[in-house]
């Protein structure tokens, strides 16, 4: 089954979805004057990623938001997961995934430990654990949501930069030629249509704008990835890892 298209609205920038880097994570874990603000921003930023995992992990839809909220309050903020985040010890993505995985497993164990089936026997703990093998959907849902988060942040940055430079045409051409087709399967708008709409004089202009915007978007996306790896050379490895974990073979 094809994944539901990622819902991204680069124009809907909010404080919670602004870029978060290791500095913000360190700040959130500290007792600085801005720590509370950083914690709120981080909670908002990672909510969709955590929620994506929770929804696929055997928790009922009705419970999913509560479990997500509980994880953020108890683990991310309460037990100060952020304080144990360390760029030298690996990716924040891995840390968060492990934490939410364990949290959901504990949650399901608590539920199943008191649940009896109609014939009277207690549900085995293994039933819950089966949700968490390497190829299970919660893992993939988490990774897909993570990619969506990165893409959304990068798109917001690129769009903001284009509009600030009075290059609405550049954003529009990138958006309808590359971005939306990649995310939603929409048919790319033709060169001729862009030339008419934006009074461009040659296909060469459109080709150059597309290429330039791809470069800008790539740089923004690499910056987003760099926030988690903090090592430029490992960005490509991180991309391959994300592609593999979301079921896509890297070219």
């Amino acid at each position: 089954m094809r994944d539901k298209p990622i819902s991204i609205s680069p124009g809907d920038s909010t404080a919670g979805s602004s870029r978060t880097d290791w500095r913000a994570i360190f700040d959130a874990a500290s007792s600085s004057a801005t720590a509370s603000q950083s914690r709120d921003a981080i909670a908002q930023r990672y909510w969709p990623v955590i929620n994506a995992f929770v929804r696929r992990s055997g928790v009922t839809i009705a419970e999913a938001d509560d479990v997500t909220q509980a994880f953020i309050a108890d683990v991310v903020l309460g037990r100060n997961l952020l304080a144990s985040a360390d760029p030298d010890r690996g990716r924040f993505r891995s840390l968060l995934l492990t934490a939410v995985r364990n949290f959901c497993l504990d949650h399901l164990r608590r539920c199943t430990a008191t649940t009896r089936k109609p014939d009277g026997w207690v549900v085995e703990l293994g039933d819950a654990a089966e949700c968490f093998d390497d190829t299970s959907s919660p893992e993939r849902a988490f990774q897909v949501a993570w990619v969506a988060m990165l893409i959304q942040s990068a798109a917001q940055a690129v769009r903001a930069r284009a509009l600030a430079a009075s290059r609405e045409a550049h954003w529009d051409i990138f958006d309808r030629r590359v971005f939306q087709p990649a995310l939603t399967g929409a048919t790319p708008v033709t060169t001729e249509a862009f030339m008419r709409q934006w009074s461009l004089t040659s296909p060469a202009q459109v080709a150059n704008i597309v290429a330039r915007m791809k470069r800008g978007f790539t740089a923004a996306l690499m910056a987003e990835l760099g926030n988690y790896d903090d090592d430029g050379e490992s960005v490509a490895a991180e991309v391959r890892s994300l592609l593999a974990s979301t079921g896509t073979a890297a070219p």
Binding site: I6, A236, L242, T246, G247, T248
Partner: peptide
């Protein structure tokens, strides 16, 4: 698996 929707954009980095 069918590639997820963001794959093509991630591949720009590669």
């Amino acid at each position: 698996e069918i590639p997820h929707p963001g794959a093509e954009l991630l591949e720009l980095i590669l």
